[in-house]
Design a protein around this nucleic acid. Sequence first.
RNA 1: UCCUCAGUAGCUCAAUGGUAGAGCAUUCGGCUGUUAACCGAAGGGUUGUAGGUUCGAGUCCUACCUGAGGAGCCA
Length: 460
Amino acid sequence: MIQPDSYVRSLLKRSPGETVTARGWVKTRRDSKNVHFVQLNDGSSTTDLQIVIDQGVVPPETIARITTGACLSVEGELVASPGKGQTVELKAVTVTLHGGADPEHYPLQKKKHTLETLREIGHLRTRSNTFGAVFRVRNALASAIHKFFQDRGFLYVHTPIISASDAEGAGSMFGVSTLDPAAGAPDYTQDFFGRRTYLTVSGQLEAEIFAMAFANVYTFGPTFRAENSNTPRHLAEFYMIEPEMAFCDIHGDQDLAEAFLKFQISYVLETCRPDLEFLAKWYDPQLIPTLEAVVASQFERISYTEAIALLEKSGKQFEFPTYWGVDLQSEHERYLTEELLKKPVIVTNYPKEIKAFYMRANDDGKTVAAMDVLLPRIGEIIGGSQREERHDVLQQRIREMAHHGMKEESYWWYLDLRRFGGVEHAGFGMGFERMMMYLTGMKNIRDVIPFPRTPGNAEF
RNA sequence: UCCUCAGUAGCUCAAUGGUAGAGCAUUCGGCUGUUAACCGAAGGGUUGUAGGUUCGAGUCCUACCUGAGGAGCCA
């Protein structure tokens, strides 16, 4: 096992003269008359460690096998590098070749590959510079999220992956069953759980249970949608963060969402600078200035009604017409956040007809206390609301939705939370990979998750 | 799921309906404390699949497969 002081990242910071062992995978080898240069990387750093192997230290037949992709351990002395591009390098004394990578067949070459090609070698793309940077950022982002909530006293709750609630309106769900599909019409009362079950589309309803006991809670786990979505922004399996706060209204909800987004960006700017610089260089030169601008900005907050008014007087021709009562289309959201306001926008108080049943009804009788946070380039990154805490109002709403297949008896425990010690509360959901896209400048969501699950794709 | 575009060497891409090419990678040779090293040579192809039009198809037509972009749904 590599010890903390022996990661490539650590070795690059240590002083000349020390005897160390480096382990990792070869990026490339260059030969000179009396010396071989090997770029070694263990995934801890955007920068490789340069290994210098003098003629005779390693038998020629071993040198020949030290090719791109091979795995090595190298013991030697860290020395000041006379060459450009690095301050220290490792002068090899002992080289152990753990596994070669036949250059005739190893698909990762020391040249630029398209992201589409790398996606098809999902078991090897992790060794590329791009995915090294992406997954270090992903790791840091996950850490930032826990830190943000833990520092505020939020309780981390694991909501179930397998769920019986058919989460009305949340789109198609993956069924979970141990019944033999070949056995004809399924009788779910005989199924593993004695009822129809699904992979969760949201932990929110269960998070509300915890918020009614621990006040401030959050979930961070996988979520599944069986929608046949083929876009650069959708996955069938993705990660979602869902905070839920008791004693919180829609305004507190917005404040938290804004602070949350800014914290994540700041944290990654601080801890992953070299990775962001690499990503900026190859994918989006404006990446870092854009991120810094968001941290410094104050998010625009407008109501749905104001948003519609802004769109109507924009004079812009939209493919879909805008009028009060229709949901905002991608083109509308993009216009608001990218062109008109040029910063993150929080849109609140949507018509109740286009939002979920659990959102708190406003006094106007027409809108609910919903909020969507829109980011330039990404669109909706956060969707949330103040929840309906009034038992009778919620019950009435569920009954109104009966014709959509909602069954009041399925929500008995959810309604119970309003009968016993209910209080105003609010929360939101943030797509983890959407945030990753924003932070890394990656334009396809399949390139910010280790193993993307999309329609027709589950190879790795 | 709908619309649009694309599929040619391991990779990135050329090729007016008329002999299928280059760069990188690979192999071999040369040079060199190198930095996506450099110089030279060689090998490498059922042009996504199946049909069709044509004297002749990588190129035109049809269907299918795969990928990408846009839309819907959303996070």
